[in-house]
Design a protein around this nucleic acid. Structure first.
Lengths: 179, 179
DNA sequence: TGGAGCATGTAATGAGTTACATGATTGG
DNA sequence: CCAATCATGTAACTCATTACATGCTCCA
């Protein structure tokens, strides 16, 4: 069982749901560290149903929406997955890939690249921070905020990295290109 | 053109190479933030050759290895890709996915999970740090060390997150489970 | 010479994304 | 009632990983 399936089973512990609902929940609640598309949800639910880990009810025919529920074997499979050693984490950072070839970038291009990415990280940090404040305001237990705290640390670390960039060709300090 | 293709073109700027060599280089030099498997390299090189962005030489028949070289259109495509807006970065953190369901974890399981992941991050940080020191010792320009510095910040941030974990069921401070 | 290890390539499978088609709902 | 929007599902495609098959090299 893959982690996406595990996540779906986990979400189903709260009660039956349709594929669409699960996709939305996943996007909202775990989307920041585990992206799942709607199509994947359909596929994985079908697979899970084939293994008897979820049961399906509802009309298939016309616009009938199917509702899925966790079965007892599904519950056990979920707990097994949860306790299993997690696969290694997966990072892909296009910015760093570009910087690998930094000498092939024009100073202006490099500058734009860095600026846009910094802005993106900055925005995400604020968003996370607001979200955290919101949860704290309603006295959510700290153990539910761990992923959010992780994200905040990450974004802060990246912003620190930006702040400490060495002098690069085209940077504001060095030769800014007023021809 | 996707980023893996871009990366391959970038590597080919240093001179012709075989698929195998490119795969090894990629694993070593960009593997930490852009994973590429050997099979992918074959596929993407075939695609690039089909577009005329790389040229191929060498026997196809018996154990003949093919060598690929960057063409002039390939060089231009590479520069175009390099300056294009990078796609959003992609993170997948199985640990956080597990923690989403923290209430379903036994205290002992939670503890093991956290310990193993912390150890993994700690090891990676040391590895990166050693690598950075190595490069600094041979006076590598700082601009070539940016990805490494990024990785170090990331690992440090994660370790900080571990260090600041709230009291969790089963943690050493709280009720350690001597039945 | 034969087997250990590395190099080279393809095939098969799995995972992820995008595009398409259609049906329900609802507000003007 | 008609247009806009959201819901539902599938299909097609791209990307990623794993498994397989074979060949070369070198040295014991």
């Amino acid at each position: 069982m893959n982690s996406t399936q595990g996540a779906l089973l986990g979400l189903l512990r709260r009660g039956p749901a349709t594929a669409h609902q699960l996709a939305r929940q996943a996007a909202q609640e775990i989307g920041n560290y585990w992206s799942v598309t709607r199509s994947q949800v359909y596929r994985e639910l079908t697979a899970l149903a084939g293994q008897g880990l979820v049961s399906t009810s509802g009309a298939t025919g016309s616009g009938g929406r199917r509702e899925y529920a966790l079965t007892e074997p599904g519950r056990q499979a979920f707990l097994g997955w949860l306790a299993a050693e997690p696969e290694p984490e997966h990072l892909r950072v296009p910015l760093l890939l570009r910087l690998t070839f930094i000498d092939d970038l024009e100073p202006g291009q490099l500058q734009r690249l860095l600026d846009s990415q910094r802005a993106a990280h900055s925005a995400r940090l604020e968003e996370y921070q607001a979200s955290l404040d919101g949860w704290r305001a309603q006295a959510a237990p700290e153990r539910y905020l761990l992923p959010l705290a992780y994200g905040i640390r990450y974004e802060q670390a990246v912003l620190d990295w930006f702040a400490e960039l060495p002098d690069l060709p085209g940077s504001a300090k060095g030769s800014d290109d007023r021809t």
